[in-house]
Amino acid sequence: MSRSTGLSTAPSRAGRSWWLLGLGVALLIAGVVSRFASSAPDGLERVAEDHGIAANAVEHHALLSYDGSSALVGLGIVLVLTSALSWAVRTRGR
């Protein structure tokens, strides 16, 4: 497998296809698979309920919900923030 990177830091075509595939899988999980997620309390919530801790929880107002398209907004924000961060700290030119 040969690819030319030259001076550009953009992924080559071979480099892009796996990336788009991965993004597609993440979108599928967030948009479709998540609809079949269990709504039962998770491990910590279950233990908190069983041991009388749950009532101590102080909930704050959610700006976005995991249902529908706002979950994809969250997904996009995570992608942009982490990509920018990893691009900024990376060792250049390797």
């Binding site: 990177t5 830091t9 992924p11 480099g15 990336w19 991965g22 993004l23 899988v25 993440a26 979108l27 999980i29 967030a30 998540s34 969250g74 997904l75 995570v78 992608l79 942009v80 923030l81 982490t82 990509s83 961060l85 990893s86 691009w87 700290v89 990376r90 060792t91 250049r92 030119g93 390797r94």
Partner: peptide, 18 residues
């Protein structure tokens, strides 16, 4: 992280979030 692996980091965080 370098030029090759940096794109994977964003994808990994996105996958973990999903």
């Amino acid at each position: 992280l370098d030029d090759r692996t940096a794109p994977l980091a964003g994808l990994v965080a996105t996958f973990v979030f999903a």
